[in-house]
């Protein structure tokens, strides 16, 4: 949200919707985007957007087209008044939320927090990474029924060597029957093709999308989404 400015975000969302995007994750900026790579980090810095603002045009556009949208927030930014944040997210029409730092930095309290979020009728979308232990994946996924976000790389937008096949095997074993959306470091059609072969439900495109947002070129956003849509219906 808010990057590079509100009107570009709105235009990009419209473009995305026209090009068949089903779900949208709206990231709110954090003063400390601790686990993000450089591309996404830049979208956080000096960005005043927050859940306090209403953005009526953006949300009515999403609602009108029946798009489910989810908030991505660092738990460290909302924990001071979690109930306020959850209330706001409900008011704004979010279907659920993703808290990438919850299992890492607040592990011992995480079960309670998840139950609390679900009690406010918001979907808790589990966020797992390569470093999430098997037992944690099993336990947390069992507590939820939503789709699952699986981060492939150690942080957003970066690439280190990765064996897609073994990720597929792991997810097949630990998350059988669940809708898994993969994110982090997904750049082009080749990645999406690999993910489709792994049985992915979707691909979350962050840094690559943000690069186009920065340029404000809606044509290239449409092209990126068409290309990816050709490879998977994400």
């Amino acid at each position: 949200m808010g990057y590079p400015d509100d009107s570009t975000v709105l235009a990009a969302l419209k473009t995305a919707i026209r090009n068949g995007v089903h779900k949208i994750e709206l990231g709110y900026p954090s003063p400390d985007p601790k686990y993000d790579g450089p591309g996404i980090k830049r979208t956080h810095l000096g960005n005043p957007a927050s859940i306090d603002s209403d953005y009526p045009e953006i949300f009515s556009e999403l609602r009108e087209h029946g798009i489910s949208y989810y908030a991505l927030l660092y738990y460290s930014d909302v924990c001071a008044d979690l109930d306020y944040s959850l209330r706001r997210l409900k008011e704004l029409g979010f279907k659920g939320l993703i808290l990438p730092d919850l299992l890492i930095d607040y592990f011992s309290e995480s079960k309670q927090i998840i139950t609390h979020i679900q009690g406010q009728s918001l979907e808790f979308v589990p966020f797992f990474t390569q470093a999430t232990p098997d037992a944690v994946i099993r336990e947390v996924s069992r507590k939820t029924r939503s789709w699952i976000y699986y981060g492939l790389q150690p942080s957003t937008g970066i690439i280190v060597p990765l064996d897609f096949k073994s990720v597929g095997r792991r997810v097949g074993e630990l998350l059988a029957g669940r809708n898994v959306v993969y994110g982090f470091g997904i750049r082009g059609t080749r990645d999406v093709e690999l993910l489709r072969n792994m049985g992915a439900y979707g691909a979350a495109v962050g840094s690559a999308f943000v690069e186009h947002l920065r340029s404000g070129d809606m044509g290239s956003i449409a092209e990126l989404l068409k290309e990816m849509g050709g490879a998977a219906s994400a």
């Binding site: 450089p38 830049r42 592990f107 470093a131 232990p133 944690v136 150690p154 942080s155």
Partner: peptide
């Protein structure tokens, strides 16, 4: 994969380049 809780990932400082990459 057998740790009792997730291992915190490495962090890269700054917003220019990733020291992880």
């Amino acid at each position: 994969p057998d740790l009792p809780e997730p291992l915190p990932p490495p962090r890269s400082e700054g917003s220019k380049n990733s020291s992880i990459e």
